[in-house]
C-alpha cells in the first residue's frame, strides 16, 4: 500500500439490487496522484462501484470516502472533488458542444473569468473547437466521447473517474487521451480511477490494478504482482486465470448455473 493519504477509500462496501448482490464486501484505497484501473468481466460490478463513489447510488452497507469526505453523509463536498466520464452517454444532445461545456461550468461554479479560455483549451485538446457550435446530436460516437472527456476535466477535479472512456474511440484519440490524462496526473497530482476492457491499456497506464468478479474483489496490485501471484506472463493471462473463461450473464444469481450462460448484452 502507498504511504500517501488515500484519496479514495472504500471499506466493506456491498450493493444489493433486491436479492441480487452487485458488489459484495469490497475494500480498497487509492492514493493521491495514482492511476488506478478497475477491471472485470461484464456485470462484475465496476460501474456500480463508480456510481456509489460518485453519489449516484447509495451503498447497502459499508463506507466510501472521497478526498476525505464521506460520500453518503457529505455528498456535496464529495461531489466537488471529482469529475466523471460515465459509461453511458450523458450529454444534452439538443445543445451545442459549447453549451454543454458552459452548463457544466455553471453547475460546478467554475469562476466566470477564465471559463471561456478553459473551454477553448479543452475543446482544442479533444479537437472539437471547430465544431463547438454544432448540436451534439449531430456528433459521431467518438466525438461525443471526446466532448465528455473535455467536460469531465473542465472544473479541475482532484479525482477523475473514467468508466470505459475509450470504448469506441480510434487509436489516435485513445493515445491522445491517455497521454493527456497521464500528464495531468503527473503534473497536477490528479488521481485517475478508470475501467476498461482493453487490458493492454490498463497495463500501459495504470500504476495499480484491481480485478473484480461477481461483485467480489479477487486481486489487487501492480501488473508485476498480479502476474507473479498467478504465475503467468502477461496481464491478460493473469486476468483470465483470476476470472475464468466463461462468458458472463449479468443477472445469474449462482455462477455455477451453466444453463443461463449466454451473451450478456445480446439479451437486452
Amino acid at each position: 500500500m502507498s504511504v500517501k493519504k488515500p484519496v479514495i477509500k472504500v471499506t466493506n462496501v456491498t450493493k444489493e439490487f433486491g436479492k441480487f448482490t452487485a458488489v459484495s464486501d469490497v475494500s480498497f484505497s487509492v492514493a493521491k496522484g495514482e492511476l488506478f484501473a478497475l477491471l472485470g468481466p461484464n456485470g462484475a460490478g465496476k460501474s456500480t462501484t463508480i456510481k456509489m463513489l460518485t453519489t449516484l447510488l447509495q451503498p447497502t452497507s459499508g463506507s466510501l470516502e472521497l478526498a476525505g469526505h464521506n460520500v453518503v453523509e457529505d455528498s456535496d463536498a464529495a461531489r466537488r472533488s471529482f469529475g466523471i466520464v460515465f459509461q453511458d452517454p450523458s450529454l444534452d444532445s439538443e445543445m451545442t458542444a459549447y453549451e454543454n461545456m458552459e452548463l457544466h461550468a455553471a453547475l460546478y461554479g467554475v469562476a466566470k473569468k477564465g471559463v471561456a479560455k478553459r473551454i477553448q483549451t479543452l475543446l482544442t485538446l479533444v479537437e472539437l473547437w471547430d465544431r463547438r457550435k454544432t448540436q451534439v446530436k449531430n456528433f459521431s460516437g467518438g466525438m461525443k466521447r471526446r466532448l465528455e472527456i473535455a467536460r469531465g476535466l473542465l472544473h479541475y477535479p482532484h479525482v477523475l473517474f473514467l468508466d470505459e472512456p475509450t470504448l469506441g474511440l480510434d487509436t489516435q484519440t485513445r493515445n491522445l487521451l491517455w497521454d493527456y490524462v497521464k500528464k495531468l496526473s503527473h503534473e497536477e497530482g490528479m488521481t485517475v480511477f478508470f475501467t476498461t476492457h482493453y487490458l493492454e491499456e490498463a497495463e500501459a497506464v495504470a500504476d495499480r490494478i484491481a480485478i473484480i468478479d461477481h461483485g467480489k474483489l479477487v486481486a489487487l496490485g501492480t501488473t508485476k504482482q498480479l502476474t507473479t501471484e498467478t504465475k503467468t506472463k502477461t496481464l491478460e493471462q493473469a486476468y483470465l486465470a483470476l476470472t475464468g473463461k466463461t462468458v458472463r450473464d449479468e443477472q445469474v444469481d449462482s455462477h455455477e448455473n451453466w444453463r443461463s450462460i449466454r451473451r450478456s448484452r445480446a439479451m437486452r
Binding site: T55, L56, A77, D88, P89, S90, H104, Y108
Partner: peptide, 17 residues
C-alpha cells in the same frame, strides 16, 4: 427523457443542491 438519454446523471453528480 433526460434520464433515458443520460443527461440527468450530469446534473445529479454536480455539487449543487
Amino acid at each position: 427523457f433526460d434520464r433515458q438519454f443520460g443527461f440527468l446523471k450530469e446534473t445529479l453528480v454536480a455539487p449543487v443542491s
